[in-house]
Every structure is written in structure tokens, then in C-alpha cells.
Design a binder for these strands. Structure first.
Lengths: 222, 222
DNA sequence: GCCTGATGTAAAAACCGTTTACATAAGAGG
DNA sequence: CCTCTTATGTAAACGGTTTTTACATCAGGC
């Protein structure tokens, strides 16, 4: 899957033809291999077969490339979460659990994107596009929380924003602490199960699910 | 608070006299200013007034210095959490909440340590001393969870390890996402309150506190 | 066919991490 | 007191990175 020049032949002349994309692909590969700290602008250029100054025609500096990777990551992330939510099918409760699993899936299956998004030390406030992409990801979770809350009688309806913040933080904490690297810390259970149990207990605390439901049974539709 | 040479006079000859400590202090200052990624071995040496090769007499490489800062951070962290737990005073439930607040306090008040511990991309498994210091921090939380669980009748007693993992992940997620930098994302509430509400709801889901109890009442001892 | 803007190159400056050979203290023991 | 050993710091060098600057090449519109 080498992206040098026009897809085939390998004869690329003075101009690359697709350098911007090639650099992003190279960044993803390198971040996946050595983490966002070990990633190097010069290495990305080498990997794309251009001089070390060429990338500056497409990105202001090294951080701008990482930020672009992170932005794309957030866009994929939002789509991934939205696919898991699937408009609340088969039922909002099950779909909500699916979002949690999707969060961990993404952290495991796309470690390069996840690293660029959360472990590269970027401040989301500097880049408006990045900030907005992150906001769109969170919006999926918040919307799901709103749908779930709306099913409760108004007098015992929790604030949906708070609920989404709690679930986001729990998911992010589990992903960061236990679901990265080779296997993070040794756990007595899979991160997905840990998250599912946590969300279940939290929702029970909110009164969204019944008091003594077994997890497997509780995930059933209405 | 400049640590160059023997505390006073400033005349330090060929030897520094306290370089190891001076480097750690410099690392803390620099990490606080520019994050663990922007921290530089050469800068720490400059800040201590020695040549750029001198630090290698005290640390194998740059990562070893960061790891030592992280290790000290975990030791302070464990002490900070243990002080908050305070042997379960005035009652285990309140003391448990205090641990949560202490977690966020530490992340806010000691951002340099927190960064070195959690945001520097170190793998805890490489350095045994570091790994053990981290384990000691977590042990405080796990012990508190055990005490709290022991107060429940055995048939409805949740696994304390799982409970401590959930609270750890929630605290870490809130600290990472919302309680860092200037103020992280703009929140409708303080991070401490967000965490307290989350833990409260989680404990209610576990059946550790009554269904509709006010927090102040629920914290009463037996 | 020529001009212009976009894109890539080469070379250089400034910095970092790290190693190597050498310099200087400080203390132990005769 | 003098010497030897060890710990600690220096200077210089190597290879690598980031970023800038001046120049080269190409593509497309006129």
C-alpha cells in the first residue's frame, strides 16, 4: 500500500502528485509503530520519498500534521459511534451500550488515530476545525443520552449532559488506563466487560434500568 | 528557589553538589511550562547550570529522568490519596468521596507530576520501581473499596476490585478530559462535582447507598 | 509558446540526545 | 602529607530533527 506518486509504475518525477495524503498515511503508520512522541516529520517525508522540506508545502509544521490526523480521527470516531448508535436500534438502551463498546473498539482498532486524538498533547482549542470535530464526536454520545433520558418520567429524569459526560469520562478512562499498548495493566476482565458493567451500574443508579437485572438479560430490548 | 550549588553564595566550583535534585526540580518546572513532550534534557541541564552531558552521570537517559519524576509523583499521589482516605474517617462513605476529590486536586495542583505520570507515554512495565509506585497508589483506592464493600451483606456485595477500577477510570477520565490545562473543555459544573455525582450514582447502582437518600444522610455510620 | 503559481530540492542554521575522552574535586588509607 | 581511586563535570563530536531560504521544475491558463 505504498502511496508514492501515481499509484503504479513508481516513476514519479519531480512532483509527487499526492503528497498530502501520503504524509498522512505515513504519519498513521509511524504513530502506530512508535507512538505520537516517536513520530518524526523527517521520517514521514522519507517514507513518502520526498525531501525533508517538502512537507512544509502542505503543513505549517509537525504539529499541524498531527492535528490533521487527529481531526480525521475524530471524524471517523464520530461516524463509528454514530454507526453503533444506529438511530437507537434495536432499542435505545442496547444502542447506548453499543456506543460504549464502539468507543473501546476504536481505541483498540485504530490506535494511531486514538493516539493522535488523545495522547499527542495537542490542545483542542488552538485548532477550530479540530475542536469542532471533537465536539461532533461527543454530540453522538450526548444525543444518545438525551434519547435515553427522554424515556423516563420527567420528574425522575436526570440531566442528559451530565450523563453523557459521565459515560464519556468512564469510557475514556478505561481506554486510557487499561485498553492501550499491549494490554495496559493486567485486568481480571476484558475492558469491554468492565465498561459494560460500569455503565450498567451507573444507569441503574440513575433509575434507568431495573434494580436487580442480570447484565445479559438487561441488554434485551423493551 | 534556585538549587544551584550549595544553597548560598552561588560560588559553585567544578562540582554542583546537588545535581540530581536540581535536575528533578528543573524537570518539574519545565514539564509544568511546556508539557512532557516539550521538556528537554538539555534545557534541564542549562537550568541547573551544568553542561549538557552532566545529567548522564545521574540518569541513564532522558526517559529515566521523566520516569523518576513520575515515580516520585506516584509516591506523593499515594500519600495524598491515603491522607484523603484517612483510615476511613469520619466514615468510609465520606472518606471514599474524599479520595475522589483528592484525585482531582492532585491533577490540578500538581500538573507536572500528573503529566509525567499519565501523559508522558512511559510504559509502567519497563521500570519496576515505577510500576510498584503506581501499584501502591491504586492500592489505596482498592483498599477503600474493600472497606466499603465489606459493610454490605455478603449476598449483595459487589467485587471490590471491579468497583475500584470503575472509580479509578472515572476519576482519571474526568481529570484527563475536563480538569487539565487552563480549564479543559467548558463544563456546566466543576469537575469535582461531576465526579462526586458520578460516584454517587454508581454507588447507588451498586446498592451501597439507599435509593433516594440525601448524600449527607447516607454517610452516617452504623 | 510563455507566464505564473504550486510544488519539490538542496543547503544551511539552530537545536537535541548521546557518547567519548579528558579534567577536577573529594575522600580513604598509607 | 601524599597518592590513589572514585564520583562527578566539561568539551567536543556525531547523527538526527525542525525549520527557513533560495532555487528548480512542472502544470495549466492566457
Amino acid at each position: 500500500m505504498s502511496w508514492s506518486g501515481r499509484g503504479r509504475g513508481g516513476h514519479r518525477g519531480y512532483h509527487h502528485g499526492n503528497l498530502r495524503e501520503a504524509l498522512i498515511q505515513a504519519a498513521l503508520d509511524l504513530i502506530a509503530q512508535k507512538g505520537p512522541a516517536g513520530f518524526t516529520f523527517a521520517d514521514a517525508a522519507r517514507s513518502a520519498g520526498v525531501s525533508s522540506a517538502a512537507p512544509y508545502r502542505h503543513f505549517r509544521d509537525r504539529d499541524a500534521l498531527i492535528a490533521d490526523v487527529a481531526r480525521r480521527g475524530f471524524e471517523r470516531f464520530a461516524a463509528h459511534l454514530a454507526r453503533a448508535w444506529d438511530d437507537g436500534s434495536p432499542d435505545p438502551f442496547t444502542a447506548f451500550e453499543n456506543i460504549g463498546r464502539a468507543y473501546l473498539d476504536f481505541a483498540r482498532d485504530e490506535p494511531a488515530y486514538y493516539s493522535a486524538m488523545f495522547e499527542s498533547g495537542l490542545s483542542l482549542d488552538n485548532d477550530p476545525a479540530l475542536h469542532e470535530a471533537g465536539e461532533r464526536s461527543f454530540a453522538v454520545l450526548r444525543h444518545a443520552a438525551e434519547v435515553l433520558c427522554a424515556r423516563l418520567p420527567p420528574d425522575k429524569r436526570p440531566p442528559a449532559l451530565m450523563m453523557s459526560l459521565h459515560v464519556w469520562a468512564l469510557s475514556h478512562g478505561i481506554a486510557s488506563l487499561f485498553a492501550r499498548g499491549d494490554d495496559g495493566r493486567r485486568l481480571p476482565m476484558r475492558p469491554e466487560d468492565l465498561l459494560e458493567a460500569g455503565v450498567l451500574l451507573y444507569l441503574r443508579g440513575l433509575g434507568i434500568i431495573a434494580d436487580r437485572a442480570e447484565p445479559e438479560e438487561a441488554t434485551r430490548g423493551p
